[in-house]
Amino acid sequence: MTPADEVSIGCRVLAAHGNADLIWGHLSIRDPGGAGVWLKAAGYGMEEITPDRVVLIDRDGTRLRGDGRVHLEYPIHTEIMAARPDVGAVVHSHAESAVAFAATGLPLRPVGHEGTLFWPPDIARFTTTGDLIRDRALGSAVAEAIGDRNALLLHRHGLVTAGPDVPTAVLTAIFLEKACRLQLQAAAAADTYDHSDEAEALAKRARCYAPAQLDAAWSYLVRRLASSA
């Protein structure tokens, strides 16, 4: 499977699971040959992405391959990958639950399984601006804010997830959207609500999201995508 194929599948899975926002949001994968980053082309919804709607760019956003336009926020992807050799794929979306949850200022707690991926410690946050991450300086600031973590809330904006590959980065975005949604629902229903303590959260993280479990979950989502085509 080519990098463009992987980005295409990942974008359509994201769109089907709470991360679509008209033509905005994007997924990238590091070029295996070191040429740059393969990124969803601008101007299309995630559900519309096919391999020919994926472009290869360098760190400056120059298009090296493909015919599509380059997203203005490409520095989110290029700067995280420049700072993190362990990262092979990055997601940025405007998942509504993540945007709403960030606005509450609440620490993210593991109300269900999903939250254990992000706490403890509390999820990383970027509060410098809610505007677009449109240049290398802002992209570098986002990379610094996420540090060595798997996810970041961009306040007044959306989410960013990073993983070694497309399945991990995409699943992490889906789980973060759900974790935020569950906590919003719990907080709306009661002033206090139950969640895992640190020991249980770490144990659940290891059991629920081991590589074999993530592989099985990804295969399921890809099968669902194929059956709905």
Results as ranks from 00 to 15, higher is better:
Ser227Asp: 15
Phe126Ser: 00
Asp165Pro: 11
Ala206Pro: 08
Asp165Val: 07
Arg207Ala: 12
Ala82Phe: 07
Glu200Asp: 13
Ala186Glu: 12
Ala98Phe: 00
Val142Trp: 06
Asp58His: 13
Val99Gly: 01
Gly61His: 09
Ala210Phe: 04
Leu225Asp: 15
Gly130Ser: 12
Pro164Thr: 13
Val54Glu: 05
Asp52Ala: 02
His17Met: 00
Asp60Gly: 15
Asp52Val: 02
Asp86Cys: 13
Ala83Phe: 10
Ala141Glu: 14
Leu72Pro: 10
Thr104Gly: 08
Thr50Lys: 07
Arg53Tyr: 02
Thr129Trp: 06
Asp197Cys: 10
Ala83Thr: 04
Arg224Gly: 15
Val90Met: 08
Val170Leu: 07
His155Val: 15
Ala189Cys: 15
Phe118Met: 07
Ile23Met: 10
Leu154Thr: 01
Val13Lys: 03
Pro164Trp: 01
Arg136Phe: 04
Ser97Glu: 13
Asp215Trp: 07
Ala82Val: 08
Arg125Lys: 09
Gln183Asn: 04
Thr62Asn: 13
Gly68Ser: 01
Trp24Leu: 14
Ala16Ile: 00
Ile49Phe: 01
Gly66Tyr: 03
Ala179Val: 05
Val222Tyr: 11
Gly34Asn: 03
Leu14Ile: 02
Leu182Thr: 10
Val37Ser: 06
His113Leu: 11
Glu177Tyr: 03
Gly45Phe: 06
Arg181Glu: 14
Ala189His: 14
Tyr74Trp: 15
Glu6Tyr: 00
Leu106Phe: 09
Gln213Lys: 14
Gly88Pro: 12
Pro110Arg: 12
Glu198Ala: 11
Val222Gln: 11
Val87Asp: 02
Arg84Tyr: 08
Ala210Gln: 12
Trp119Ala: 15
Arg205Met: 04
His195Trp: 12
Ala226Arg: 14
Tyr209Phe: 15
Glu144Ile: 11
Ala20Phe: 07
Pro75Asp: 08
Ala89Tyr: 01
Asp194Phe: 08
Ala229Glu: 14
Trp38Val: 05
Ala89Phe: 03
Leu225Arg: 15
Gly45Thr: 06
Val142Arg: 00
Pro121Tyr: 00
Asp86Tyr: 04
Gly45Asp: 03
His195Asn: 08
Gly61Ala: 08
Gly34His: 05
Gly61Lys: 09
His17Phe: 03
Phe118Leu: 08
Arg30Val: 00
Gly61Pro: 13
Val142Phe: 02
Glu48Ala: 14
Ala145Asn: 07
Asp191Tyr: 09
Val54Arg: 10
Leu106Arg: 05
Gly18Leu: 03
Met81Tyr: 04
Leu171Glu: 12
Arg65His: 11
Leu106Pro: 00
Thr168Lys: 08
Asp197Leu: 08
Leu132Asn: 06
Asp21Thr: 12
Leu225Pro: 09
Ala141Gln: 12
Arg69Cys: 10
Asp58Gly: 13
Lys204Phe: 06
Ile80Met: 03
Asp215Gly: 02
Ile9Pro: 08
Leu214Ala: 09
Thr2Tyr: 06
Leu152Asn: 02
Ala82Trp: 05
Leu159Ala: 07
His26Met: 09
Tyr44Ala: 11
Gly105Glu: 03
His155Tyr: 02
Ala137Cys: 00
Ala187His: 10
Val37Ala: 07
Thr2Gln: 07
Glu96Pro: 13
